[in-house]
Design a binder for these strands. Structure first.
Lengths: 197, 197
DNA sequence: CTAAACTGGAGGAAATCTCTCCACTAGAAG
DNA sequence: CTTCTAGTGGAGAGATTTCCTCCAGTTTAG
């Protein structure tokens, strides 16, 4: 494959990811091509169907999720509180909204196949990270990996311009409050363990 | 106006509200008419333009918001914790997602006019409710009315089927955790007031 | 420099959406 | 019950959007 062709392919996936996260996966393919600065023909040559493009976007996001998670797992023992907070911040920047909300209709048909495999790997990583996080008392015992990922996806789904303007930094605050809430719940559990009824 | 005509008009607004909340305000008007069980011509006779329909949906939601808020304000003195919780649960059932997320692009042009007036009234009501809620130590002092409304809108925006299936009851849990987080933050503030640094 | 890989975007086909028109249905007043 | 008229539904023309192919021309690698 020629070098410039590969570059264009990457640009297409990146732009598709951006647009999917912003508007859902039903964006016009023409818009993806234009946004990536390539002709529409190039898109169709690289991705046989819309589903193929969606799949690549899904894989890219899952790969990022997995690497962020491994990183956090390595940092956790040193400073649990800080590592956990930094991890969640990374998740926020990850277009999980695109994965869970926008892509899921298209990915539903791909319950088997590479996306599903990548998803299992990533979720397993998150789950094993959560073992340490729970032990550190940062989240309640019943917080699951899938639940965490979907929750972050919901909170960070991009909002229309008017909303962002009406309540700037709202997402950051929401994340702060959520983390505080998880911590509080973990605290309640711990107290119950120490002094059982 | 004939009685049956009025009934159809209401059905149209109700169906539009449902569909806007579910899919954003760019639903096909044909779909709204069909969902309401009336012909497309009836829709166009009642609402001159798409914007007129959107406006009515906005007014309906804002009216519900306001009445829920007044109700809660009346209940608050008797039992703050319970009233606050019940209020938030009501907000969750209110299609605020439709108001903030789906409608805002169309409503942006209506910055003056009936929708804007209704919004100011409703937000003023929420603000005055929050005075009591803050005093009861249930939320931090800097939680604003608009922020609360938009936050609930974000969290309750409807999710695609696949997401709902992957993590059922997630929205309920999110709301629980959020309330716990707000409470915890309010607690921190209170502690700081008692024992200032 | 040459061959082969690769490109862009015009444009036809297909789908979708908007909105009008008018023959008809069914409330309401007497 | 009859009559008058406000109100109805849905076909379909026209406008818009999206999909996808085709090929003359450009760019890279060797």
């Amino acid at each position: 494959m020629r070098a410039d062709a590969a570059r264009r392919r990457v640009a297409l996936v990146r732009e598709a990811r951006r647009l999917f996260a912003e508007n859902g996966s039903d964006v016009a393919l023409d818009a993806v091509a234009e946004g990536a600065g390539v002709g529409i023909a190039t898109l169709y040559r690289n991705f046989e169907s819309r589903a193929a493009l969606v799949e690549q976007v899904g894989l890219a996001i899952l790969a990022d999720l997995r690497s962020a998670t491994t990183q956090a797992a390595a940092d956790l023992p040193r400073n649990p509180g800080h590592a956990w907070r930094a991890y969640v911040d990374q998740l926020v920047a990850l277009d999980l909204g695109a994965l869970t909300a926008a892509l899921s209709p298209d990915l539903a048909g791909a319950l088997h196949g590479p996306v599903s495999d990548a998803q299992q790997l990533s979720l397993a990583a998150v789950e094993s990270l959560l073992v340490g996080v729970r032990a550190a008392g940062l989240v309640p015992a019943d917080l699951g990996a899938l639940e965490l990922v979907v929750a972050v996806g919901i909170v960070t789904r991009p909002q229309p311009e008017a909303v962002r303007q009406a309540a700037p930094h709202l997402v950051d605050r929401l994340v702060d409050v959520l983390l505080a809430g998880l911590l509080a719940r973990a605290g309640v559990e711990a107290a119950a363990r120490v002094r059982p009824t």
